[in-house]
Design a binder for these strands. Structure first.
Lengths: 221, 221
DNA sequence: TAGATTGTTAATCGATTAACAATC
DNA sequence: TAGATTGTTAATCGATTAACAATC
C-alpha cells in the first residue's frame, strides 16, 4: 500500500471491477485471480493488481482475491458503503430513463429529487418522484444532503444549471449535456455525453474511399 | 501532416472540437486560434494543434484556423460527410431518449430502425420509427446499409444482441449496457455506460471520515 | 514440496506539454 | 516591419506492462 496520488484512470476501473465481482458473488464464486479478471474485463492482470494495491493488500499470494472481501473494500473506496443522494435536473426523456435505471443499480447512489424549468412539467411524476420547480433546488439540496447533481437539460441551459447546483453546495456533477462545464476545481465533473462516443465511433468505420488499398488502419489521407 | 497511427485519445477529441466549431459558426465567427479553443475546451493549445496536424495543415500561421474549413475537414475525418445509418436495439426508456436525441444532433448519424425482443413492444412507435422484431434484424441491417449498432438492452442480453449485430455485418457498436462485450478485433465498440461514470464520481466526494485532516486530495487511508 | 498468484520494482510505451523556427 | 500563431521537434510526464521475489 503506497501513498501516491491515484490517477483518474485507476478510479474509473474500480466500478468495472466491482460490477464483475458482484456478478461472481451472485454466482457464488468465492475467489478470483487477477488473471481471470483480466481475461473477462480485457485488462492486463498486472494493471489490475497494481490498481488494487494502491488501496491495500487485498489479495493472497498463491490464492487470489476473496470476492466478497474485495467487493466490500472497493465499495468503501468508492464511498458506496453509505447512501449517496443525487438530484436530477431535466425531466425529459433522458431524465426519465435515468430515474428508472436508478432502480437497476443497487449501489447506494439514489436519485432523491427531480427538477425542471418547465412549469408544465413541475408537479408531474417521474418514477416515484414529483418534479419540482427550480426555485426549490437550493433548499432541497441543502435540506436533503444531496451531494451529486445529474444534468440532463439541453446544452444551452447546462452551465446555468451547473452554477445553481454548485451554489447550492453540490460536490460532483454528472453532465449529460454536450458542453464543457466551467466550475471551481473542487467540484468534480464527469462528462457522460454519448454524442462524443457516437461521433468518434464513426471515425473507425472502414471506408473504401481511400485511393490506395485500405488495410483497415486509419492513416492520414 | 505525418503518417502515424492516430490514438484513440485524439479521435475522441475531434467531436469536441467539432461541437465548439459549430457553435462558433452559428455565431458567425470565422477564425479561431488553438489558444482560444484550448481556453473554451479546457485543453492545452499545443495538444489541439498537434491533434489537428495529424490530419493535415488546416491552420494558417499568424492567423489561426478558418472555422468553416476546419468543420468541413473534421467532418470528413469522422466520416460525417456522408449519412451513416444506425440501428437501435432495445426500445426501453433509454432507447426512447436516444431516438429523440437523434433529432438534436444533426451530424448525419441517423437511427433508421429500432428492434426489441419483447413481442408486446413490436409494432409500437418510437419517434418516427416502428419497433421491429429481432427476427428481422439481419435483413434490415443488410438491406438498409446499417453500419452502427446502439445497444440499450439489459446487461444480460447485451452480448447476445452484439453477436447478432456482428453476424449481420455491423461495423461498430455503442454499448449502453454495463457489461464488457466480446467481439472480433475489427468491430469497434465504445462503452457508453454511465453507471461507471456515476460510481467513479462517488470516489471524489469529500468524506470527513479520514483520521487526519483531509486536504481534499485522495490518498490511501 | 510444487504450483499458483500476489505486490512491487524496473522497463517500456505512449501521451502531453514546452519551446521555437517558420511565416502569415 | 512587428505581433500572432501555426506545425513540429524535443522534453517531460504519466500510465501500462513485464518480471520476479515473496509466500500461500
Amino acid at each position: 500500500m503506497k501513498s501516491e496520488k491515484i490517477s483518474e484512470a485507476v478510479v474509473r476501473r474500480l466500478p468495472v471491477y466491482l460490477r464483475y465481482l458482484n456478478d461472481l458473488n451472485k454466482r457464488e464464486v468465492s475467489t478470483v485471480s487477477s488473471q481471470e479478471l483480466g481475461l473477462k474485463l480485457d485488462l492486463n492482470p498486472a494493471q489490475i493488481r497494481k490498481d488494487l494495491a494502491y488501496f491495500g493488500d487485498f489479495g493472497r499470494k498463491g490464492i487470489g482475491y476473496d470476492v466478497s472481501y474485495l467487493i466490500e473494500k472497493i465499495r468503501h473506496i468508492l464511498n458506496l458503503d453509505q447512501q449517496i443522494n443525487a438530484v436530477l435536473v431535466g425531466a425529459g426523456n433522458l431524465g426519465h430513463a435515468l430515474s428508472n435505471y436508478n432502480l437497476y443499480l443497487r449501489e447506494n447512489i439514489k436519485i432523491v429529487a427531480v427538477f425542471d424549468e418547465n412549469p408544465k412539467k413541475v408537479g408531474s411524476r417521474i418514477s416515484t418522484l414529483t418534479v419540482q420547480s427550480m426555485d426549490e433546488i437550493s433548499d432541497t439540496i441543502k435540506g436533503q444532503n444531496i451531494r451529486i447533481g445529474i444534468i440532463t437539460v439541453p446544452d444551452v441551459e447546462a452551465q446555468n444549471v451547473a452554477d445553481k447546483l454548485i451554489t447550492a453546495g453540490i460536490e460532483a456533477i454528472l453532465n449529460f449535456a454536450p458542453t464543457i462545464l466551467k466550475a471551481p476545481a473542487n467540484i468534480r465533473i464527469h462528462a457522460a455525453d454519448f454524442t462524443t462516443d457516437l461521433l468518434s465511433l464513426a471515425y473507425y468505420l472502414d471506408n473504401g474511399k481511400d485511393d490506395s488499398a485500405d488495410d483497415g488502419e486509419h492513416k492520414d489521407k
